[in-house]
Design a protein around this nucleic acid. Structure first.
Length: 462
RNA sequence: GGAUGGGUGGCUGAGUGGUUGAAAGCACCGGUCUUGAAAACCGGCGGAGGUUCACGCCUCCCGGGGGUUCGAAUCCCUCCCCAUCCGCCA
């Protein structure tokens, strides 16, 4: 959510930043709505002031038993009532329209983000390690996993459809080991606090981090609503065959069902972790706050038809260890670098060749001011693929969540800055380990750091 | 699923129609006192917005929305949220 004052003060800067994202200028539209709202406000407030004053005088007149004066004032106010009502309606309408409009405008890119239209303009800023050299043709992870009998897409499709996978035996264990390894690293060496959060959240929570209102199609939805609606229709059919009930009764039931509890499935633990500070006023001494969580993530992958259709690159459900930092504004840029290094350290310890890329203005996410992607080398695909994305959201999410801190006692509150990053995507890390540690015979060597989490197992084989 | 009780400023918590934006306490800021600190005492201290060169003035905010009224934190309707008890349950 944007600061209206900023747009008012410097509409050119606002439009210029939007343009870097490839968007048309919006300040004229925003400011026109703002001006219309304020015009109504001034008119309304004058009417309200007069009404309030007259009401006070009525109270005084009645106290003095001056009935004539009171009646005259009441008559005057009667004429204002309609105008005030109209003004209030108009204000509400304009205000909510303005808010809705602002809620769909993405964050502005930081000054040091490279310009560009799409991912081809992203800039590699560092690279670590080397691609492994095999004396044989490298296979892709799903070929290896299926041959081992430990990765089953067919069975997953039978029960859940496409974009699901079932891991079995040692691969299932390795997924768990990877998550454990990451959590221990981030909590014990980097000072992140482990959190076990809800996976189902409310609308307001999803709005806070920016998934709503614009990206509801990318999300999964859970609730009693659909089930209950169906159930009620069936009940209605049964009832209509037998004992009659009033049509209104069914309507009432359906209306009630519409309002039953409903939740969104989190697309990333960024949502609950960042919302830990929603509606809070933090003490500056507790900043920065650093949270990590290992959770499943759920994504509809709408609009990804045809992309990464084979293998476990792009699933409806995947595991991820997430990192979130809450900082004072002055700290966020440095924290962003630190967070990216924390994520990168996982790959270093696992000995996985990778590079860090800064996303261009056309490729950064809705809430982000600046994003680093970490891309891991996949020998089977012979290319780098994203395994982590670390973003500094500035105060964009904090405004939506109303997350503040009091910089100095007795002074006004300020919005915190929020950052999030994958530390890392567990499914893709597993995939990367499989491809990078594959052996000629189709077995998988277990990287050193993971062995402790797998009871010393050194190799995964049939 | 059933039954109650609640949602008031940074926190606790009064307040059932007329200078109540809101008592009191805590916290915080300034001052007095003190060698210093603490204690005590005195004073200050919510947010959002509009308007003004400025001092200031005005409006809105007691979970959200709507309504009654000249006037609502206070009455009515509705929605949301929280807590407790019972039932069910990993």
């Amino acid at each position: 959510m944007h600061d209206l004052k900023f747009i008012r003060d410097d509409p050119q800067a606002f439009d210029a930043a939007l343009k870097r994202r490839g968007l048309a200028p919006l300040s004229t539209d925003v400011l026109a709505r703002d001006a219309a709202l304020r015009a109504v406000l001034v008119k309304l407030q004058n009417l309200q002031a007069r009404r309030n004053e007259a009401s006070r005088q009525i109270g005084q007149a009645k106290a003095k038993k001056d009935q004539a004066a009171a009646s005259a004032l009441i008559a005057e106010i009667a004429g204002l009532k309609d105008q005030i009502q109209q003004g209030e309606d108009e204000e509400r309408r304009l205000q909510s329209q303005l808010n809705d409009f602002l809620a769909t405008i993405p964050n502005l890119p930081a000054a040091d983000v490279p310009d560009g239209a799409d991912e081809t303009a992203n800039v590699e800023i560092r690279r670590w390690g080397e691609a492994p050299a095999f004396g044989f043709a490298a296979k892709e992870h799903f070929e290896l996993g299926e041959a081992l009998g430990q990765m089953d897409f067919a069975a997953a499709a039978r029960m859940s459809g496409s974009r699901f996978v079932i891991l079995k035996g040692q691969l299932a264990r390795m997924e768990r080991a990877i998550a454990q390894f990451m959590l221990d690293l981030h909590t014990e060496e980097f000072g992140y606090r482990e959190i076990s959060p809800p996976l189902l959240v409310r609308d307001a929570t999803m709005f806070g981090t920016g998934q709503l209102p614009k990206f509801s199609n990318d999300q999964f939805f859970a609730g009693e609503r659909e089930w209950r609606r169906k159930h009620l229709f069936e009940t209605a059919e049964e009832v209509s065959a037998g004992t009659p009930v009033g049509v209104g009764d069914i309507t009432d039931l359906l209306e009630k069902a519409e309002k039953t509890e409903q939740f969104w499935l989190i697309p990333t633990a960024e949502v609950p972790l960042t919302n830990l500070v929603r509606e809070q006023i933090l003490n500056p001494s507790e900043l920065p706050l650093r949270f990590t969580a290992f959770t499943p993530c759920f994504r509809a992958e709408a609009g990804a038809a045809g992309k990464d259709t084979t293998g476990m690159m792009r699933m409806h459900q995947f595991a991820k260890v997430e990192l979130v930092s809450i900082t004072a504004p002055e700290q966020s840029a440095a924290e962003h670098e630190r967070m990216t290094n924390c994520a990168q350290e996982v790959l270093k310890r696992l000995g996985l060749h990778h590079r860090v890329v800064v996303l261009c203005t056309g490729d950064i996410g809705f809430a982000s001011t600046k994003t680093y992607d970490i891309e891991v080398w996949l020998p089977g695909q012979n290319r780098f693929r994203e395994i982590s994305s670390c973003s500094n959201c500035g105060e964009f999410q904090a405004r939506r969540m109303n997350a503040r801190f009091r910089a100095e006692q007795g002074k006004a509150t300020r919005f915190v800055h929020t950052l999030n990053g994958s530390g890392l995507a567990v499914g893709r890390t597993l995939l990367a380990v499989i491809e990078n540690y594959q052996q000629k015979d189709g077995s998988i060597a277990v990287p050193g750091p993971l062995r402790a989490y797998m009871r010393g197992l050194e190799r995964i084989s049939i």
